[in-house]
């Protein structure tokens, strides 16, 4: 399979502080790539480079090349709105809007004018909720507040919201870190299910989680990409001594 995302010699700065050093990485299409590494190593920063979420941070500066489907997303004439529609994001802390369950999922469809009729909108919302494995739990309470859902349900709602705009890539920033084991398991099953249709990049602190759901793993430390390998190799026979120390829990 081809590479969906290609990053070459990426450097990233917050003002004078450099957060990412010379990162080159290829992310294949329709696979799950996990980013692991100690806190503050730049995984989340790197994730947010991929949908230009760092644009909102003043003094952030980027060098190097990030290509999605062969197109440089940091070119001056890039349509950031279209980019973010194509590269969806799920955040560490679920962040539903103060709207109904239905309107949360419908939001992205509406702002991007993707629906042809009310019926179409309802169908798209239903499909997104089904794809996020949430439909059966919420189908009778769509007009009620999204804040009435449990933590795990809220996070799956946020996934449904991201799926509703039909992205090609989904970035997940520690999506299960605030959830209990059962809710976490649901999210993990969902990720494995979703990779049939989407390219998924997931940041996680949970080594077992990375081992369970990802096809490839990238290990970051202090803003540098130490190693990228198929997950199985990474967890059994890593190339780098640092990687081995980290995943066996010797530091971090």
């Amino acid at each position: 399979m081809g590479n969906k995302i290609t990053v070459k010699n990426l450097n990233f700065f917050y003002g004078k502080d450099q957060a990412l050093f010379d990162i080159s990485l290829k992310i294949p299409e329709r696979e799950v790539m996990a980013f692991v590494g100690p806190s503050g190593c730049g995984k989340s920063t790197f994730l947010r480079v991929l949908n230009r979420m760092n644009d909102t941070i003043p003094y952030a500066r980027i060098e190097g090349e990030v290509k999605i489907d062969g197109k440089d997303i940091y070119k001056a004439k890039t349509d950031v709105v279209a980019l973010r529609r194509m590269v969806g994001m799920v955040f560490q802390k679920s962040n539903p809007f103060p709207k109904s369950i239905f309107d949360n999922v419908a939001y992205g469809i509406r702002i991007n004018r993707m629906h042809s009729s009310k019926k179409d909108l309802a169908d798209r919302v239903e499909k997104a909720l089904k794809d996020a494995a949430l439909w059966d739990e919420v189908k009778d309470r769509l007009p009620t507040s999204a804040f009435g859902l449990s933590g795990g349900q809220q996070q799956r709602l946020c996934i449904a919201r991201a799926l509703a705009v039909q992205p090609e890539v989904i970035l997940m920033d520690e999506p299960a870190s605030a959830l209990d084991p059962i809710a976490t398991q649901k999210i993990e099953e969902l990720v494995v299910e979703l990779k049939k249709d989407y390219t998924i990049v997931i940041v996680t602190h949970n080594m077992q989680q990375a081992a369970r759901i990802s096809d490839r793993t990238a290990f970051f430390m202090l803003g540098k990409l130490i190693e990228v390998n198929p997950t199985e190799k990474m967890f059994t026979n890593p190339d780098d001594k640092l990687t081995e120390d980290y995943i066996t829990g010797r530091f971090g």
Partner: peptide
């Protein structure tokens, strides 16, 4: 950020 990430 949730809204921005949806392309708003």
């Amino acid at each position: 950020e949730g809204a921005l990430a949806l392309g708003a």
